[in-house]
């Protein structure tokens, strides 16, 4: 069951589209449910599809197409580091190595305490601030240095 908060937020998104185009809100609805539950289980996707009166498989298509949706648990904090060219030129590899060593996990792995998951990201459209990372899809940190990474991780409790 979608929470009433989630429904309220989805309903707000629905106001953006014509009444007969509920499916249009699926991008937001999946984001809202993922933010609330941490990741998108098949049940979550199914609930969203039902709420928007669209075929489940169509919602699944969307959830699997856009890579910020997580179809498996990602721990409490998902840390996505951009490694694309502009970041790579500014040594994102060193940031990745530092994170891997510090967290003791590789890409797509979750720390033993279930707190962090490290992901490799594609271009985030903020290359001027390279190297950079995003925490849980919605908080970006730019101009990373090992010291800054330490501070970011310390803040995530």
């Amino acid at each position: 069951m979608l929470s009433s908060e989630a429904i309220q937020k989805i309903d707000y998104e629905l106001t953006k589209y014509p009444a007969d185009q509920r499916q249009a809100a699926v991008m937001s609805a999946l984001r809202i449910v993922q933010t609330e539950r941490g990741w998108l289980s098949k049940e979550s996707i199914s609930e969203v599809a039902q709420y928007l009166a669209m075929p489940e498989i169509a919602a699944m298509e969307v959830a699997t197409f856009y890579n910020m949706y997580d179809l498996a648990p990602v721990g409490k904090y998902k840390i996505t580091v951009c490694t694309n060219i502009s970041c790579m030129l500014r040594d994102s590899d060193e940031i990745v190595d530092y994170l891997k060593a510090k967290l003791g996990v590789g890409f797509n792995e979750i720390t033993a305490d279930g707190k962090f998951c490290l992901k490799e990201g594609e271009c985030m459209g903020a290359c001027g601030g390279a190297p950079l990372l995003i925490v849980n899809n919605h908080t970006m940190h730019e101009f990373l240095t090992p010291e800054k990474v330490d501070a970011i991780l310390d803040d995530l409790q």
Binding site: C123, G125, C127
Partner: peptide, 12 residues
């Protein structure tokens, strides 16, 4: 405003 091409961040 979907800037995703590496090196592009002006619209932001």
């Amino acid at each position: 405003t979907d800037e995703g091409e590496p090196g592009t961040f002006k619209d932001r």
